[in-house]
């Protein structure tokens, strides 16, 4: 259905005319935005910023100034509590930059352009452990923002393979199979990264990328085995791929799949975020805010991801 509405939107855009307009919006009160993440074997990362006025022009400097660096951030694992320290990307040793980029979802080159300051810890005792619930507490400007997330036990894929399209030899989607455990409420997220490089040596996919509708739950296949496929999100930003081949993997690609188990709140955040991104500009979509799992009116998410990694060579 979404695809169909997208087609309608596209058809309307093609047959219609578009012009810039100005809209008077009521004064905007910025809100705190939490982009927090914890994964097994990695430290918690919490990026704090303020949401921005819709029509405010934003430069790199504006973005840098928009990060919140005067908060106190605590993580609790049900037993102990640690205060996270502020770490800025310009002070992170070069060898850790790709890891930080991966965790933050920004490419290393983007991190070189922007000095991002996040709250984290180098204490390995606070690296994520599967089966643990992590509570987040943020103190800022006299307000407290709280959230909870889980590192659930991951569910491995039965298989993942490159499915070449008969109509387009050499190209195809990434097919996967899963046996969902019995009991409703399991939710997953799919991200991929091609390990291949361009001729200049730069990586094709600097970080893991999520396709549209990257997350789903087992509402319709609880306890069943089923298969699905995803397109190649990296191809859309790859200028070396011609338009007719966008969305496909090609023979020769080596693809890392990050297949994560997430809890319900994180799934809801990802699901609505995907819906917003996919529906952007569609007259047929209803406006929806992305529900945060952080209280007190904050935006964003405190997300625990329990991934299993697979590598597929397209051949």
């Amino acid at each position: 259905m979404k695809k169909l509405l997208y087609i309608f939107s596209l058809a309307l855009l093609v047959t219609s005319c578009v012009k810039d307009i100005t809209i008077d919006l009521p004064p905007y009160q910025p809100k705190i935005v939490v982009e927090g993440k914890i994964e097994p074997g990695y430290p918690p990362f919490v990026l704090l910023s303020n949401s921005l006025d819709l029509f405010a022009s934003t430069s790199v400097a504006d973005l840098e100034n928009n990060f919140i660096t005067d908060a106190q951030v605590f993580v609790n694992n049900g037993v102990d509590t640690v205060q996270l320290i502020l770490i800025c990307t310009d002070s992170i040793p070069a060898q850790y930059q790709p890891i930080v980029a991966e965790l933050l979802g920004y490419s290393p080159s983007e991190l070189q352009n922007v000095n991002i300051c996040a709250y984290s810890t180098f204490d390995p005792n606070w690296f994520g452990v599967v089966g643990t619930t992590y509570n987040l507490e943020i103190f800022h400007n006299g307000e407290v923002f709280r959230s909870t997330t889980d590192l659930l036990f991951p569910v491995p894929l039965d298989s993942a393979y490159f499915a070449e399209r008969p109509s387009l030899p050499g190209f195809g989607y990434m097919q996967a199979e899963l046996t969902d455990p019995a009991g409703s409420g399991d939710a997953y997220r799919w991200e991929t990264k091609r390990l291949n490089h361009y001729s200049d040596g730069s990586p094709k996919d600097p970080v893991l990328l999520a396709p549209f509708n990257s997350s789903f739950d087992d509402q319709f296949f609880d306890g069943l085995q089923f298969s699905w496929y995803y397109d190649n999100p990296g191809s859309y930003r790859d200028s070396t791929v011609e338009d007719s081949k966008k969305g496909f993997y090609q023979i020769g690609d080596t693809v890392v799949i990050k297949w994560s188990k997430v809890n319900h709140d994180v799934y809801q955040f990802l699901r609505y975020a995907d819906a917003q991104i996919a529906n952007g500009g569609s007259p047929f979509a209803s406006p929806v805010n992305v529900p945060s799992n952080v209280d007190n009116g904050a935006l964003g998410v405190w997300a625990g991801y329990s991934p299993i990694y697979d590598t597929v060579i397209c051949e």
């Binding site: 309307l12 855009l13 219609s16 005319c17 578009v18 012009k19 810039d20 307009i21 100005t22 809209i23 819709l54 029509f55 022009s57 934003t58 430069s59 790199v60 504006d62 973005l63 920004y106 080159s109 983007e110 070189q112 352009n113 922007v114 952007g280 500009g281 569609s282 007259p283």
Partner: peptide, 27 residues
């Protein structure tokens, strides 16, 4: 007919440009 928003520029590209969101009207 409807309005939508279009973002222009990339704040993380580091080319000195700015990132803006513009309202567009479709007729």
């Amino acid at each position: 007919y409807f309005l939508y928003f279009d973002s222009q520029g990339d704040p993380l590209s580091g080319n000195g440009g700015s990132f803006t969101i513009k309202a567009k009207q479709v007729s």
